[in-house]
Simulated assay, not measured.
Amino acid sequence: MTLSTIEQLSIAAAAADRTGAEDAVALDVSRPLPFVDAFLLVTGRSERGVSAIAREVEDALNDAGVRTLRREGREAGRWALLDFGDLVVHVFHEEERSFYALDRLWSDCPVITVPVRDAAETTAG
């Protein structure tokens, strides 16, 4: 089973929201980056929060059948990058989100409106 990028974004956004993520932004980066369709950027308010958000997003997508290709930074709790192929999820602590400024770096990319839904809804329907 493969899920569309929008379905993956929806599952990831719901998982991030469940664990207290803030300032979620989904960007269509398919034009400048031919190897990935979308970025999901979210903020956690603490190191523990960043780690929990990253873990929940990864678990939710894995449970939906989407394999994690690469994972970086989660252990330190300041930022995490989760690569699922078509989707890359960036979870930042507030300070790192400001420092790396991916929102600004990719500001010419279209924002994707993501319907937030649980993985169970996707697999059941």
Rank of each mutant, 00 (worst) to 15 (best):
T2E: 15
T2L: 12
S4E: 12
S4G: 15
I6V: 15
Q8I: 07
S10C: 03
I11K: 02
A12L: 00
A12H: 10
A13S: 15
A15D: 10
A16G: 04
A16I: 09
R18I: 02
R18L: 14
T19P: 00
G20V: 10
G20K: 15
A24H: 05
A24Q: 15
V25L: 15
A26H: 07
L27Y: 05
L27F: 10
L27D: 09
V29R: 08
V29I: 15
V29E: 01
V29Y: 09
S30F: 07
S30V: 00
S30P: 09
P32E: 14
L33R: 02
D37F: 03
A38G: 03
F39L: 01
F39R: 05
L40H: 09
V42K: 08
T43D: 08
G44D: 14
G44N: 14
G44M: 14
E47P: 10
R48A: 04
V50G: 01
V50Y: 04
S51M: 15
A52D: 00
A52T: 11
I53M: 05
R55G: 09
E56I: 00
E56Y: 05
E56H: 08
E56M: 12
E58G: 14
E58I: 00
E58W: 04
D59C: 00
A60W: 10
A60M: 11
A60G: 00
D63C: 00
D63A: 06
A64D: 13
G65R: 03
G65V: 12
G65F: 03
G65H: 01
G65L: 06
G65S: 10
V66Y: 09
T68W: 00
T68P: 15
R70H: 00
R70Q: 10
R71S: 13
E72Q: 14
E72I: 04
G73N: 01
G73T: 10
G73A: 01
R74K: 13
E75K: 05
A76W: 10
G77I: 07
G77Y: 06
R78Y: 13
R78N: 08
W79P: 02
W79D: 01
L81T: 12
L82Y: 03
L82A: 05
L82G: 11
L82W: 06
F84C: 11
F84S: 08
G85M: 06
D86P: 04
L87H: 06
L87F: 11
L87A: 13
E95H: 04
Y100A: 12
A101R: 01
D103N: 09
R104F: 06
R104S: 12
W106S: 05
S107K: 13
S107W: 04
S107Q: 08
S107L: 11
D108K: 03
V114F: 05
V114L: 08
P115L: 14
P115D: 12
V116D: 13
V116H: 14
R117D: 02
R117I: 13
D118A: 12
D118L: 10
D118V: 05
A120G: 12
G125K: 08
